[in-house]
């Protein structure tokens, strides 16, 4: 083997003048057993690189990861273009702004019963993007209410007739 060639390659390596193929040659060279003493010091570096290069995970790995991830799969890959996901936000913000402005200004004498008036769900801004997190929150909330119900002496109030609902703020 012409060690001079390797030495030249090495020099060019430090200067970043080597191509990928030439670098591969260096690594292959240094993986050998027979290396001249003066080049021996660099064996560790290149052999180490080669070891790393060849490191692989086996087939069973795929199965393990997919198992962990697969149970979430039914919720399909969620595409959320940033602008698209912000549009409802802008609309909602606009609506809230309008309503709040009106709410403050308007003082009419209209009186109407608000039997079953709809909640303005469009203005609801989600605090969570992830259903899992939302689920946790709801879970907590229901747990608290449940405890509270159990503690209070809730008699037949559940079956009382509905109150007469007049509007009043």
């Amino acid at each position: 083997m012409d060690y001079k060639y390797i030495e030249q390659l090495l020099e060019r390596y430090w200067q970043c003048e080597t191509s990928l193929e030439e670098e591969a040659i260096l690594r292959t060279f240094f993986s050998q057993n027979e290396i001249p003493a003066e080049l021996m010091p660099y064996k560790g570096l290149f052999a180490g690189e080669k070891t790393l290069q060849e490191a692989r995970l086996d087939e069973s790995f795929d199965a393990k990861v997919l198992a962990k991830v697969e149970k979430d799969q039914p919720v399909k890959a969620r595409k959320l273009s940033l602008t698209r996901s912000l549009i409802p936000f802008y609309k909602a913000a606009a609506c809230v702004a309008i309503i709040l402005t009106l709410g403050n200004a308007a003082q009419t004498s209209f009186r109407q019963q608000d039997i079953g008036d709809d909640y303005n769900y469009e203005t609801y801004q989600d605090s969570y993007n992830d259903p899992e997190m939302a689920y946790d929150q709801i879970s907590n909330a229901l747990q608290m209410v449940s405890q509270s119900l159990n503690e209070a002496s809730v008699q037949d109030s559940l079956l009382q007739t509905p109150n007469n609902e007049e509007s009043q703020n």
Partner: peptide
Amino acid sequence: TPYDRLAAREGLGLL
């Protein structure tokens, strides 16, 4: 060879 393995292992840590 054992020497290879030693060198490789050292190489990894060295790297």
